[in-house]
């Protein structure tokens, strides 16, 4: 026990908690969790970024709270406790957005509330925060949320760029003048199925670069 007390904040083990969810154990591309929201909010870049940030906040905080409470939570109602913690944090985020980032909150609308249903969050509470100390739990939460977030942002980037020719609402394709050469926006990119296919392409690229993710026959 005394060994863990002396462990530096960013020890190799802790860094790993932060970094493996970005790649080797990515919640979306490897564990295939949280797909539903990844499909719903990625038609444009801005909501994808804001939702990624919101999930990082909620997940980091939820993991810390559950980790602090882990020795007091009765195991028979632990799922309910986790839900209450997540739901309260999501409501807080929603209220703060409404007070200080009104325009963004109007854009995101129901999606903020849908963070509650994000299976990654409860998965991490159940799998990690219930059995670990607050600091590693915090890193684990932030790492997993960031692993979820960067996929969201990449998908949002390509869907908005190819689907509506914009990035963050700025008309990129029009500025580049590619419409004059007969280029047309691919409206299909905006539809949810293309989010699935984009995620599929990311998984493909990731696995061809990171061979250990490929299941052996």
């Amino acid at each position: 026990m005394s060994k863990t007390d002396k462990e530096p904040l960013f020890s190799g083990k802790n860094i790993k908690l932060l970094s493996t969810p970005l790649n080797d154990e990515n919640p979306i591309t490897v564990q295939v969790l949280g797909i539903c929201s990844a499909l719903a909010v990625t038609a444009m870049l801005e909501p994808a970024v804001v939702l990624a940030v919101a999930v990082i906040v909620v997940m980091g905080a939820a993991n810390v709270i559950i980790s602090l409470l882990r020795n007091t939570i009765p195991s028979r109602i632990r799922i309910i406790v986790q839900l209450v913690v997540i739901a309260s944090l999501v409501i807080l985020v929603d209220q703060v957005l409404k007070a200080f980032f009104y325009d963004v909150s109007r854009q995101l609308s129901v999606f903020v509330g849908l963070i509650i249903t994000n299976c990654i969050i409860m998965g991490r509470l159940e799998a990690f925060a219930l059995g670990n100390k607050p600091w590693p739990s915090f890193l684990d939460g932030v790492g997993n949320a960031a692993g979820y977030g960067w996929i969201l942002i990449v998908v949002g980037f390509f869907r908005e760029l190819l689907g509506s020719g914009n990035l963050w609402g700025y008309p990129v394709m029009e500025t580049l003048g590619v419409y004059n050469f007969g280029y047309e926006d691919n409206g299909f990119m905006i539809l949810p199925p293309m989010a699935l296919i984009t995620v599929g392409v990311i998984i493909w690229v990731q696995r061809s670069r990171n061979r250990k993710l490929i299941e052996s026959q």
Partner: peptide, 24 residues
Amino acid sequence: YASAMVIVVAAVLSTVATLLKPYQ
């Protein structure tokens, strides 16, 4: 445990909602 949790959460959320209401 459940009762205490619900009371704490209700207090926190209603405080925040009341404080932020003028801004909203």
